[in-house]
Amino acid sequence: MPETIDYLNDELLLTSDEKPRAPQTPLLDRAVEVIKRINAFIDETGAEPVSEPGRGVRERMLANELAGLRASKADLDGLASYDTRALIFGRTSGADPLDDPLISDDLDIFEVRGELKPMARPDFVADRRPCPDFERFESLFIRVRKTVEGGKRTPQPFRQERVELGEFFVLKGQIVHVADVRDEHRRNGKLDARLRVIFDNGTESNLLMSSLVRRLYEDKDARRIGTAGAGPLFEGAQTGFVYVLRSRSNKPEVQGLLKVGTTSGTVEDRVARAETQSTFLFAPVEVLVTYELKGYSAKEAEQRIHRALRTYHTALKVIGPDGRSFSAVEWFKATPELVEEAINVALS
């Protein structure tokens, strides 16, 4: 078979002022799209976007994305030809990769805010890491950003005591999506939960709801984009999964029951650490079947399915390892065939 020639990158065919082009990758494609929007902003305003109190939502989001490009420039060699203003490769990034808005604090490390009080310790510490299935959420971020920039959706100041599954927020100029809510419990006397939070820079975190709420209140420019009127955001896009599972607990009251729920992430992630979560009865589980979600947010689909299964619902009380009592929902006394029928009816 004759050798295929890449006429775009063959160095023998390039003129003296041309350079070989780097192969496009999904990451590079996203970076190119971001720098084009930043350049358009500079064309309009004559200045780089800045993320600081008092600036507009669009500007703060662009400033955050610019900081992300500067911090990741070592992995974006192919972006240099698009950096016509030397915004990224013409200077040293001042961004501190450890400057995470979710863990930052203005206090000196030796400064104590009032009297020290005993606090509940988290079962594990939230971290920021690359989101392995970000392609599933990327289109949602793009659509949310376009509706905000086009004036179709107006972000509102944050005035909530908790956040809900599926909501979008602007925090420190970055769009944040609550993709999953799990392990609801009480912490320091208040309802709390473990979240799966996706950020528009392709990372995610498993922080507590109380931590996210606190950071949203601390940022005076934080905004709630919410989910109201979000219908078209989910049309045709894979938005998550419905799962049906059985507990491996040996308690008699659990026998014959199935748990039916939804998740915006992977089912494997959702049931990981099941033995540490009250919603899974602090026991391992067996996943019987999963269904792909399209056209519905995970939260909306769950509400519809649970309404269809209401007559089979069974309320459970479970005692945690620390002796506390929890209510466990989403459990139903039904067969897998009956559950499948209810899912088809609810989502038809």
Rank of each mutant, 00 (worst) to 15 (best):
280 F>K: 02
65 E>V: 03
113 R>V: 14
245 L>N: 09
228 A>M: 07
44 E>C: 08
302 E>G: 12
80 A>V: 12
224 R>T: 05
182 R>V: 15
297 S>C: 05
142 I>W: 00
318 V>S: 04
44 E>D: 10
219 D>N: 00
224 R>S: 10
315 A>V: 08
129 R>Y: 14
57 V>L: 05
7 Y>A: 11
304 R>E: 08
75 D>C: 09
3 E>S: 10
144 V>D: 04
316 L>R: 10
114 G>W: 07
61 M>C: 10
167 E>I: 04
161 E>D: 13
102 L>N: 03
137 F>A: 15
59 E>V: 05
288 L>A: 00
15 T>V: 11
244 V>N: 03
4 T>E: 09
185 H>E: 09
16 S>L: 08
241 F>C: 12
176 V>I: 08
104 S>W: 02
57 V>D: 10
169 F>H: 11
80 A>Q: 08
56 G>L: 10
215 R>Y: 03
321 P>G: 12
16 S>Q: 08
223 R>Q: 08
92 T>Y: 09
97 P>T: 03
229 G>E: 08
210 S>V: 10
5 I>W: 10
318 V>G: 00
194 R>N: 15
344 N>S: 09
211 S>M: 10
276 T>L: 14
132 P>E: 15
185 H>R: 15
214 R>S: 05
62 L>E: 08
75 D>Y: 12
13 L>A: 10
286 E>I: 06
128 R>H: 14
223 R>L: 14
297 S>G: 13
341 E>K: 13
133 D>E: 15
250 N>A: 14
149 E>S: 06
269 D>W: 07
23 P>D: 03
40 A>G: 06
333 K>Q: 11
147 T>F: 02
115 E>N: 13
318 V>I: 09
247 S>K: 00
26 P>G: 06
110 F>W: 09
122 P>G: 11
196 R>M: 06
6 D>F: 04
118 P>Y: 06
87 L>W: 15
296 Y>S: 02
108 D>L: 14
49 P>R: 00
191 L>Q: 09
237 A>M: 01
93 S>E: 04
210 S>F: 00
216 L>N: 00
176 V>Y: 05
208 L>V: 00
15 T>G: 11
287 V>M: 05
292 E>Q: 12
210 S>P: 06
36 K>F: 13
234 F>Y: 15
27 L>F: 10
109 I>A: 13
188 N>A: 13
325 S>T: 14
122 P>N: 00
192 D>R: 02
293 L>H: 00
252 P>C: 08
124 F>A: 15
267 V>G: 04
205 S>D: 07
311 T>S: 13
23 P>C: 03
102 L>E: 11
305 I>N: 01
153 R>Q: 04
